[in-house]
Write a protein that binds this DNA or RNA. Structure first.
Lengths: 156, 156
DNA sequence: TATTGTTATACTCTATAACTATA
DNA sequence: TATAGTTATAGAGTATAACAATA
């Protein structure tokens, strides 16, 4: 048996296992960046900011879904982010029961400080790799990003 | 100016920027797995379990450091993880002021349910990539893992 | 009537500061 | 005296359930 399923059946196998194993170092390095950047803000708040930048503006329900939480929790999170000036709430005129969420300028600036820390962590590892491996990694990640986008579109 | 520094100076440049940009899709897919797995456990608890598996047994101070928190917070987290049977505390006979932390069998089982969800998410993207890109990605990640290990050892 | 979002309550996460016990 | 961990307190994160407002 080489397949399993959660919703639709998907192929699996040794390759997926190996990739999952080898990807962990990159993921850990990435996630670690927020521990360095100052001022320290709670992980959930960082996650919301990143989501808003990565996926763009959205309403509260969409944020909750992509965040992996329920609207109630997301609303509370936004209370704090709005209070500290990192996120804006805005009620669109054409549908007054939605709340449009977006990053403020300060929210973007804060994310960029995480980016800086992350690029330095990445650079310290990349400089120990061969030029060939670096190129392979970038090419592989590029196609992965494209494929991930397609997979999201297909399931939407 | 093509360099910047947080602690020691490190090289940077367009390549690092591109890699950081293209890595985000993989990281998001990875981190999303814990949203699917049931039963749902808090993100901090997942992070502790993953750390204990990735880095092996350690004392409370080491966990707090690698976790990016202070010992007090880590201790409280371990209270809950111990209460729910996912982590064990153990006092070594040769140094009775330390607390050795390790995963229980149930803790490992729980992590594996996250792994399953993650492998399915990964498989759904990988099947949309060319065989060449998949191979490049795995090779690149493999060398990245090795280099990350070296970088950790060098700074330790 | 269904959808979008907020509030009430209770438990979990986290930091600061104060404490206990071991080396 | 310094180090490893825990506990007291307070503020942030999260879910369940109940609520208000708009479509």
């Amino acid at each position: 048996m080489r397949t399993s399923s959660r919703k639709p059946p998907v192929p699996t196998g040794q390759f997926v296992d190996d990739l999952a194993t080898q990807a962990e170092a990159l993921v850990r390095l990435w996630d670690q960046a927020e521990d360095w950047a100052v001022p320290r803000i709670p992980p959930s708040q960082v996650k919301v900011l990143s989501l808003l930048r990565y996926r763009g503006e959205m309403n509260l329900s969409a944020l909750a879904t992509k965040f992996g939480a329920i609207p109630s929790s997301a609303s509370r999170l936004c209370d704090r982010l709005e209070a500290s000036g990192l996120v804006q709430r805005e009620v669109p005129a054409d549908n007054r029961r939605e709340v449009r969420l977006s990053l403020t300028r300060e929210g973007r600036r804060r994310l960029e400080s995480f980016d800086d820390a992350r690029r330095e962590d990445l650079a310290r590892v990349l400089e120990r790799m061969s030029a060939e491996a670096r190129a392979a990694l970038l090419d592989g990640l590029r196609e992965f990003s494209t494929a991930a986008q397609e997979a999201r579109d297909a399931s939407a």
